[in-house]
Every structure is written in structure tokens, then in C-alpha cells.
Simulated assay, not measured.
Amino acid sequence: MEYLVIKCGGSIVKQLTEDFYKNVVRLQKEKQITPIIVHGGGPMITTYLKQMDVTTTFVDGLRVTTNEVLDVVEMVLSGAINKQIVRKLNNQGAKAIGMSGIDGNLFEAVPVKNADRIGYVGNIKKVNAEVVEAMIEQNYIPVISPIALGENNQRYNINADIAASAVAQALQAKLCFISDIPGILIEKDGKKHILHETDEQEIEQLIQTKVIYGGMIPKVRAALMALEKNVPQVSIVNGIKPDTLIDFIDGKKVGTMIQLKEVSHA
């Protein structure tokens, strides 16, 4: 059985059309590919924190995550967004099931290195893949929110890119980051072009020159981490354009495919 982990960022979830959800179901029913969705929810979390008058601060661009903030994060991720995705998949005839990294101890978390400054933000120590596999055996499409437990049952917020990478590693699945742009864009002859293939060395150069910046940095870092753990394929594709997921699985040149070994642009 072939698996595909699809990571949907919080900023794109509300932009995904009916076609996207139809394609996820087509992967399962026509292509014999088992999809697993991992999602974020940053923008909606920010909105709810403001509405609920929960004070948040930032350190080096990262939200300081207290237990009070985590209450809202968990409500938004595991409640509103997760169930929205499940509902839309079910509307297309799928059997989707929502879960967080807490359910069945799917994710075991440890605090990030600078946790003393940013609070309860974690990394994934272990993915208990049998939890996902049990759902897949029942023909469900798992939809996972990146909340996890660590020592003493402390909750942690996990970056969704990191969570998706960890799930792909555990299942040895292909990994597809869904974005609202067609991939990594570079400027050439005064125009922006899609970098259809790139490698670790080029990515580091693009980060240094700030071609890759902001939220794209953890995405490409998570991609490289997955490839180092023998994930067979990692790409960044536009999830808003119709049939992109199908084209990706069919091997067409869509988005940016990331590799460890050097690629030639000749």
C-alpha cells in the first residue's frame, strides 16, 4: 500500500476548493494511494486569541505558547479546522476521521531547545504509526492536528510541517506540502519562474540570499529532514489549482520537487 502525507497550512485551508477534496478522495478510490492529511491553523488561532482576549507575545517571530494559549490552539486545531476538513472529505463520499497527536498517543513530544523562551512548543520524539495504520485498515482517511503530549502529560504545539514530515518518516510515505503558490519561485530575466527541482545545497543558498524566507524555511527544512530518513519523494505544490494532486501522483512536472542529491538546471 502506498501512502501520501498531505500537509495543509492554516493559511490555505480556507482557500481549498471542492476540487481539492475530490482529488484527495480520487487518490484513495482510483489511484490506490492512501492519503493522510496533516494541517496547521496559525491565522485562525490568531483570530480566536484576539476574540477571547488571550494575551500573546512573540520571541524572534515565534508565538510564546502558555497553557492558556494552548487551550485556544487545541480548540482551533483539533476542533474547528480538523472537523471542517473531515466534513468536506465526508461530503465527497470519503470516510474521514479526525484526530490529534494526543489521540492514541500518536505523537510523543519533547520541548524545543529554546522552550524556556517560547513556552510549550515541541518537537516529535516518536510517531506511533500503528494508530494511523489502524484507521487506514478500516478505509478511513486520517486528518491529523499537530498537538502532542510530552512528559507529565504536558501538551505541546507542534509545527505542522514538522508533524507532517514525522508522519511521512514513520510510514515511509511520499510527502506533499500544499501551498497557495506553485512552488519555490526564483527570478530570472525579470520574471518569476517555478524551480521544478532543487536540492539541499541550492536550498541553503536560497535561504542565505532570502529567496526562501518566512514560513517557507521550516517547510524546506522539514522536507530535507524527511528525505534524510528515506521518505521517497517530497514536493511543494499549489493546492488551489485543480487536479494538482493527481498530476503530482501521475509524475507530471508540478510544483517543486526537493532532493538531497545535486540536481542540474541545464
Score class of each variant (00 low, 15 high):
residue 9 G to Y: 08
residue 180 D to W: 06
residue 143 V to E: 11
residue 105 N to G: 05
residue 148 A to S: 07
residue 69 V to Y: 05
residue 14 K to R: 08
residue 100 S to Q: 05
residue 13 V to I: 12
residue 163 A to F: 09
residue 220 V to W: 04
residue 176 C to K: 02
residue 110 V to D: 15
residue 183 G to W: 08
residue 96 A to L: 04
residue 250 D to L: 13
residue 152 N to P: 08
residue 20 F to I: 04
residue 264 S to E: 08
residue 235 S to R: 10
residue 127 V to K: 02
residue 178 I to Y: 06
residue 47 T to P: 14
residue 101 G to M: 00
residue 265 H to E: 11
residue 74 E to P: 02
residue 159 N to G: 03
residue 10 G to I: 06
residue 94 A to M: 11
residue 124 I to Y: 03
residue 160 A to C: 06
residue 99 M to W: 01
residue 202 E to V: 09
residue 57 T to G: 13
residue 33 I to P: 03
residue 76 V to Q: 05
residue 158 I to E: 04
residue 6 I to D: 09
residue 68 E to W: 10
residue 78 S to I: 02
residue 81 I to M: 04
residue 26 R to I: 04
residue 131 V to N: 12
residue 83 K to P: 03
residue 34 T to H: 05
residue 21 Y to M: 05
residue 184 I to F: 00
residue 141 I to W: 02
residue 173 A to Q: 12
residue 216 M to C: 09
residue 40 G to W: 05
residue 198 T to R: 00
residue 28 Q to V: 05
residue 188 K to T: 10
residue 79 G to H: 06
residue 105 N to K: 13
residue 128 N to K: 07
residue 65 T to K: 05
residue 171 L to C: 01
residue 94 A to Q: 07
residue 17 T to W: 09
residue 5 V to G: 01
residue 248 F to Q: 10
residue 61 G to Y: 13
residue 150 G to V: 07
residue 261 K to R: 11
residue 189 D to E: 05
residue 109 A to W: 00
residue 78 S to Y: 01
residue 168 A to N: 11
residue 76 V to H: 07
residue 20 F to A: 03
residue 47 T to V: 12
residue 89 L to P: 00
residue 209 T to L: 15
residue 187 E to H: 01
residue 247 D to G: 13
residue 179 S to Y: 10
residue 121 V to W: 05
residue 153 N to M: 14
